[in-house]
Design a protein around this nucleic acid. Structure first.
Length: 671
RNA sequence: GGCGGCAUAGCUCAGUUGGUUAGAGCAUCGGAAUCAUAAUCCGAGUGUCCGGGGUUCAAGUCCCUGUGCCGCUACCA
C-alpha cells in the first residue's frame, strides 16, 4: 500500500479564498487525495493558513484588530469556503499556533548548529523617519569607487562594483529621502550556496517532475543561489530562539512550509496518536507531494528541500511538486487589490460548490494559464453535467420506475452490444485511473463524460421505449447495462463530485461504502429509490447577474493609503513647471526608459523617464507636460536625468502624462 | 537588455520519444428519434499548426531567426 503525504500551499490569512487559489493548489490536491482513498492508499492531506508577517499586522491595525484576531477571522472564513467546496483536509492548521512555533524554532536551531545558518552582525542604515532598517535596495548615494551618483546599497550601476551599503557617500533613504543613521544589527542568513551541489544531485533524480517546475528552478540554479536572510525586525512572527535576538522574528517564507509539519503534528494529536506524524515525515517510503501555484516553485523546490536536508531528525524530501499555472478570469489576471476575483464565499451564496469543482477540474491550469468565464461555466454545467450525465441518469431512472417499478435484475446472458458498451467503459476507466495518478484532472473530466456518452448512445441504439412493447427482456437488459454504467460513474467520479455522486448512489440504493475495486463488481439487483434531477441548469439571468457582480466589484472602494500631512513650506520647496518636449528617444538597452529633451523657457534639459511602454517617442514631441524641476539630478544608465516628468498611474497598468488644459507657455510655474 | 514560457478550427483546449489524411468539446448546419431536465443520437464543414529559413526520406513536434503576449530580473526620481 502506498503511503502518501499531500500538502496544499498555505494560504495567506489576510483575505478570503478565491477560485484561483482553488484551481491551483487545493482542488487538484483534494481530487488526488480522494482518488487515493478509493484505491486504499495510506494518505493524509494537510494544509493551513500562513499567519505571520508584516501584511497581517498592517491590515490588523487598519481594521482595529489584533493580528491574532484578524488571522482567526480569515482562518475561519477560509475554512468555511473549503467546506462549501467539499475540500477536505485531514487537518487545516495555522502558523500562529503553538506547535508551529516550537517546530520552526527547532528547525532554525538545527540549521544553526550545522553551520547552514549564520549570524551576520552588520552595520546597517536605519531611517529614523520611517523607523526601519534599510535593506540594500532602500538606500542609495554616491559610489565610493567611481563617485557616481545614484549608486544603490548593493551595487553601483555606473562602475558595476559591489558595494557594502554603509560605505555609500551621502546616503539617502529611498522611501523618504532623509539621511539614515548607521545602526548595528544582527540577522541570520540561510547559506543557500552551500546547498547547490546537494540540490543538483537530488534534482537529478526528479526527471519525472513537470517541465514547468524543472525549467524554472534550473534557471535559478544556473544563475547561482544567494544567501538569504531568514530573520526580520518586526513584532508579529516567531521569535528567534536566541538570547541575543531580542525583537527578531523568523521571516515568513522560512516558517511557512514548516507549517506542513506542524499541521501533521496537530493532526496526530487530534486523533489521539501524538507520534503518528513521524510515520509520514520520517518514513523514506512515504511520498511527500506538495500542491502549489507556480509562484511558489522556488521555495518548495529549492529552499524548502535545503531546510529539510540539514535537520537533526530524518525528514523526508518532497517526492513531487505538481505546480499549477494561473487561472485568469475572462482573459484578465486576478487582481485582489482591484477586487477582480471570484471569491469562494461569494460564489457559494449563488451556486453549489460541486459545480465549481467540476468546471475548475475540466479547465484546470495544468500546463499553462487557463481562462475562467461565466459563459464557459454555464455551458459546462448545462451541456455536460445536466444534459449528458444528469439526463442519462434521469431517463434511465424514470423509465425503470415507469415500466418496471424501479426494479431491474441482471439478465443471465448479455448481448454483444452490451458487452461492447462495458468494454468501452472499462477502457476509459483504466485511462482515468492513470490520469488521476498523474494529476491530469482536465483529461479525467472529459473521459468521465465519455462514459456517460457511451450510456446515452447505447440507450438510443437499443431504444428500450420500443422494445418494452414487444420484448421486455431486451428492455431490461438495456436498463441494467445503463444502471451498471451509472454505478461505475458514481465511483469513478467521486473524487471530482463527491457529494453529487453520493446523491446518485442514494437514488440507486447503493451501498455507501465502496472502493475502486468495486467498479468491476456488478450489482445484480437494482431497486431505484426516490429520484430527482441531479443538476439544475444555469439560466442566462444567473450568468448576467454574475457578470454584473464581477464588473461592479471592480468599482468597489479601494482604501487609499495616505502620506503624512505636510506644511505649506514643504510644498513651496517644490518647483514644478510646464515644459515642452523637444526630443524623445528610447534609451538603448532599456525596456522602460525614454530620454527626453525638454524646453523650459530659454533653458533646455535632458531627463530620463520610465514611460516607454506607454508612449512612442514621436507622439511626445511638441507636447507640453508637467515636470518637477528641482529634483536632484541622478544618473540612469549613464545619462544624467535633471528632473522628473509627472504622470498618473493606476493599479490597472494605465499611465498618463499630465498636460495643461489650455495652451500655456513652457516655463510657466505650477503651484 | 538578460533568462524562461506560450502562439494549433469561430471559442476553450489535446497533440506523448519527429511517422499515414492534424484531433476533442462547445458553437454552426443537415438528419433521426420521442424514454428523458427540448434532453439524446447520427452525419457534415471549417485550419498558411504565428511569419521566415534550416536539418531530415519525413516537422505542429527538432535547430536558427523575426513578431506578438505572459512570467522572473535589471532599469522606472
Amino acid at each position: 500500500m502506498e503511503k502518501i503525504l499531500v500538502t496544499s500551499a498555505l494560504i495567506y490569512a489576510n483575505g478570503p479564498l478565491h477560485i484561483g487559489h482553488v484551481a491551483g493548489a487545493y482542488l487538484p490536491a483534494d481530487i488526488f487525495v480522494r482518488f487515493h482513498r478509493l484505491i486504499r492508499s495510506n494518505i493524509i492531506f494537510v494544509s493551513g493558513t500562513d499567519e505571520h508577517g508584516a501584511p497581517v499586522s498592517i491590515k490588523a491595525e487598519k481594521e482595529g484588530m489584533t493580528p491574532r484576531e484578524l488571522v482567526n477571522f480569515y482562518h475561519d472564513q477560509i475554512e468555511q469556503s473549503f467546506d462549501g467546496l467539499n475540500i477536505q483536509f485531514d487537518n487545516f492548521s495555522g502558523t500562529a499556533r503553538k506547535y508551529h512555533h516550537e517546530i520552526s524554532q527547532k528547525f532554525f536551531l538545527s540549521l544553526l548548529d550545522k553551520g547552514y545558518v549564520v549570524q551576520k552582525s552588520s552595520q546597517q542604515f536605519y531611517c529614523e523617519h520611517d523607523k526601519r532598517y534599510l535593506a540594500d535596495r532602500y538606500v542609495e548615494g554616491v559610489c565610493p569607487f567611481c563617485q557616481a551618483d545614484g549608486a544603490r546599497g548593493d551595487q553601483c550601476d555606473s562602475c558595476g562594483k559591489l558595494i557594502n551599503s554603509i560605505e555609500l557617500i551621502e546616503p539617502k533613504c529611498k522611501i523618504c529621502g532623509n539621511t539614515p543613521v548607521i545602526k548595528e544589527t544582527n540577522h541570520w542568513y540561510l547559506e543557500l550556496p552551500k546547498f547547490e551541489n546537494m540540490l543538483k544531485e537530488w534534482l537529478n533524480t526528479k526527471s519525472y517532475w513537470k517541465d514547468n517546475v524543472l525549467n524554472f528552478i534550473m534557471g535559478w540554479l544556473n544563475e547561482g543561489l544567494r544567501e538569504r536572510a531568514i530573520t526580520r525586525d518586526i513584532d508579529w512572527g516567531i521569535p528567534v530562539p536566541l538570547p541575543e535576538a531580542e525583537g527578531k522574528v523568523l521571516y515568513v517564507w522560512f516558517d511557512a512550509p514548516i507549517g506542513y509539519i506542524s499541521s501533521t503534528v496537530e493532526w496526530a494529536e487530534k486523533i489521539g496518536f501524538p507520534d503518528r506524524w513521524k510515520d509520514y515525515w520520517f518514513d523514506p517510503d512515504c511520498k511527500l507531494i506538495h500542491f502549489i501555484g507556480k509562484d511558489n516553485i522556488p521555495f518548495h523546490a529549492l529552499i524548502w528541500p535545503s531546510v529539510l536536508m540539514e535537520q537533526n531528525e530524518p525528514y523526508i524530501l518532497p517526492h513531487d511538486i505538481p505546480a499549477n499555472e494561473y487561472l485568469n478570469i475572462a482573459g484578465s489576471k486576478v487582481s485582489t487589490s482591484r477586487n477582480y476575483a471570484i471569491w469562494v464565499d461569494e460564489y457559494l451564496k449563488y451556486f453549489d460548490g460541486e459545480l465549481l469543482r467540476y468546471v475548475l477540474a475540466a479547465n484546470a491550469p495544468e500546463s499553462k494559464d487557463a481562462d475562467f468565464t461565466w459563459q464557459d461555466f454555464q455551458a459546462r454545467i448545462n451541456n455536460e453535467l445536466a444534459n449528458i450525465l444528469g439526463n442519462l441518469a434521469n431517463r434511465v431512472f424514470t423509465f425503470t420506475k415507469k415500466s418496471f417499478d424501479g426494479k431491474i435484475s441482471r439478465p443471465e446472458t448479455l448481448s454483444e452490444t452490451s458487452k461492447i458498451a462495458f468494454d468501452e467503459a472499462q477502457v476509459l476507466i483504466d485511462e482515468i485511473e492513470s490520469c488521476y495518478k498523474n494529476y491530469r484532472v482536465r483529461k479525467t473530466t472529459s473521459l468521465l463524460m465519455d462514459i456517460a456518452r457511451i450510456g446515452n448512445r447505447y440507450f438510443d441504439e437499443r431504444a428500450p421505449w420500443k422494445a418494452v412493447k414487444t420484448d421486455k427482456d431486451h428492455a431490461v437488459e438495456t436498463l441494467y447495462i445503463c444502471l451498471e454504467l451509472l454505478r461505475k460513474i458514481t465511483i469513478v467520479m467521486t473524487p471530482i463530485l463527491p457529494s453529487k455522486m453520493k446523491q446518485l448512489r442514494e437514488m440507486m440504493n447503493l451501498n455507501e461504502k465502496f472502493s475502486w475495486q468495486n467498479i468491476a463488481q456488478e450489482t445484480l439487483e437494482y431497486q431505484i429509490g426516490v429520484v430527482a434531477p441531479l443538476f439544475q441548469k444555469i439560466t442566462d439571468e444567473q450568468i448576467e447577474e454574475q457578470l454584473k457582480l464581477l464588473e461592479s466589484d471592480q468599482d468597489k472602494e479601494v482604501i487609499l493609503e495616505h502620506k503624512p500631512e505636510i506644511e505649506y513650506d514643504d510644498f513651496m520647496k517644490l518647483e514644478m513647471r510646464i515644459v515642452k518636449i523637444l526630443k524623445a528617444e528610447k534609451v538603448k538597452k532599456s525596456k522602460k526608459l525614454l530620454k527626453l529633451q525638454v524646453k523650459i523657457g530659454s533653458e533646455t534639459r535632458e531627463i530620463v523617464s520610465g514611460i516607454s511602454q506607454y508612449y512612442a517617442p514621436e507622439d511626445l514631441i511638441g507636447k507640453k507636460v508637467l515636470m518637477l524641476i528641482n529634483l536632484k539630478p541622478r544618473n540612469i544608465m549613464g545619462i544624467s536625468s535633471q528632473g522628473m516628468i509627472l504622470a498618473a498611474a493606476d493599479d490597472n497598468n494605465n499611465l498618463t502624462l499630465l498636460t495643461p488644459m489650455a495652451d500655456i507657455d513652457d516655463g510657466s510655474e505650477v503651484s
